[in-house]
Write a protein that binds this DNA or RNA. Sequence first.
DNA 1: ATAATTTAGTTAAACGTTTAAGTAGGTATT
DNA 2: AATACCTACTTAAACGTTTAACTAAATTAT
Lengths: 338, 338
Amino acid sequence: MKITIKEIAKEAGVSIATVSMILNNKDKNITHATRVRVLDAVKKYNYVPNAMAGSLVTQKTHIVGLILPDITNPFFPGIARGAEDKANESGYSIIFCNTDDKLEVEEKYIETLTKKMADGIIIAHSSGSEKMSEILERCKVPIILIDRDFYSEKVCGKVLVNNLEGAYKGVSYLINKGYTKIAFLSGSLKTRTARDRLDGYKKALSDNGLEYDEKLVKYGEYKIEWGKDGVNELLSETRQFDSIFCGNDLIAIGAIKELKKNGYSIPGDVGVMGFDDIYLAGLVEPSLTTVRQPNYKMGYQAMELLLETLNDPDKKNNNFKEMEIITLDTEIIERNSI
Amino acid sequence: MKITIKEIAKEAGVSIATVSMILNNKDKNITHATRVRVLDAVKKYNYVPNAMAGSLVTQKTHIVGLILPDITNPFFPGIARGAEDKANESGYSIIFCNTDDKLEVEEKYIETLTKKMADGIIIAHSSGSEKMSEILERCKVPIILIDRDFYSEKVCGKVLVNNLEGAYKGVSYLINKGYTKIAFLSGSLKTRTARDRLDGYKKALSDNGLEYDEKLVKYGEYKIEWGKDGVNELLSETRQFDSIFCGNDLIAIGAIKELKKNGYSIPGDVGVMGFDDIYLAGLVEPSLTTVRQPNYKMGYQAMELLLETLNDPDKKNNNFKEMEIITLDTEIIERNSI
DNA sequence: ATAATTTAGTTAAACGTTTAAGTAGGTATT
DNA sequence: AATACCTACTTAAACGTTTAACTAAATTAT
């Protein structure tokens, strides 16, 4: 037989209200004897309260959604882990979702999470389309944006990385090391991160008196394959370069592979710099000098921000006037590709 | 105002039962006109049913727990993704949990999942201790074991990898390539996987007329550091070896790094073989020949098995007499470290 | 001694669904 | 013409909690 609060109440000879109060630490006015009787009954029957039933009345599930493009992409496990750790510390659980950066999947997940009454959502969304705006607007629970920025009144917080400054630092580092012909294998300009990093790249060049040469900048996907293809594009053109700043580590790894294949030594002939500092970065040959994003911290802080919002009574009524934006700084990790 | 099924019923001029039936496709006996009225009301108010409330009566949340040691370990994201994909296809959501292989954390998560009324649980558990047995026994929902075996009556299914055969295949491959002095950097014998792989290693040797030399076998952790340390142990002893079979890819990567550091060329001087085929394996230098575990498939099939159990009326009453065990085969991935 | 307050509970409504059982009118069957 | 069976719904109970409002007894204050 399934045992509920009723059985416990009967066993202990009290009302279910008393049991509920004791189990929720609202038991100032309960005698020690009663408490012991109830707790004994709980143990005897190995009773575990049904949180869903409680949620129905409290309107809180202590479940939050975490929507990411793909946990299989080495960039995301750190974020997931950070978010999960914080959630767990605070008694929350995470429902996690992979979207493959597809808008319709994001939409579906947000609806599912709404149905299942998630208390809030953290999302690394795909795009800044009009549709995205609508979807966010329609969502009834607090939303935190992570990693990818997007303007929306509805959003109640953001945890971002200072991509412009990261790229600026990275390229400045290259310049300090004496490189002057710095190519850039960027991700797609459709992404905000790529645009910001491009701006950082340009700014670093101009602040250091170097000229921006659009022939040295190529756009592709944040993947190893693009690193290879990008290098080939660069090599097939006449333009000289002594180093490559890459949109992320995967591109950098692909670039290194292809450069080596073509007989170039790294960093001897060409310096290569990555972005992200994924787990791989320290293990490839040569190990990758890169701009680290504080992955774990990003996840952790996003969850922290969400939980603050959930527990702040002022914000209860979707009254998110003062959206909080946390911008985390990057850090240069010096290894052997420069 | 929060809108519920009542508002929809009122708007459409029907009872809430009718709305519920229409929304759950139990609407054989509903006229087209009524259906349209209801659906219009749903759209007008942008109504999303509260799944928790439904769960209370159906006793199904369509939520399952996925308990893994650490999503940050490159071995696990594939499993998580496979499980999530299958769950998503079938209208289920995953709550995911990282245990760092700590028994007390596993216990806590299982309780949380029970409270939140997960319909079932998939777990890659830490150990085969007595305590684990108790914990599983106490858990009221179907449990699937993944990756790590453990005997328990309570468990209703397992998805495992044939580690013995995997190691056998791997070592046989080495032998076929002409290696005869094959060292083994194993994981800890506390883990079942390590014991199985050791058995496979021994069997491959004896089946091929090679002698088992315990001096060539070293035990450590499934980590890069152990790969380095293990190589140093091997080198510091007089015993000769022409190749190393490694307990997993991380060990292999560490081993390769350390061998190169000591001036050995791979695979020229020493062949190195891994186990797992994590994402990294194809990217290190030289790329790693390894025994692939079908990660994604493991997660996918574990979820498949769980959902079958959940939807099989015979198994409803915890009547899991015929536990299903799926053993997946490994596959040699030929790269350049052999 | 009486009133006011505190203590230690209980009662009952509420949360938002699903679903078994009921019903009224219409159609088909004998 | 009476009976059975559909059709298209409605009614009301149930799921397992939480919590506001109530109460009876004990204690304290006046």
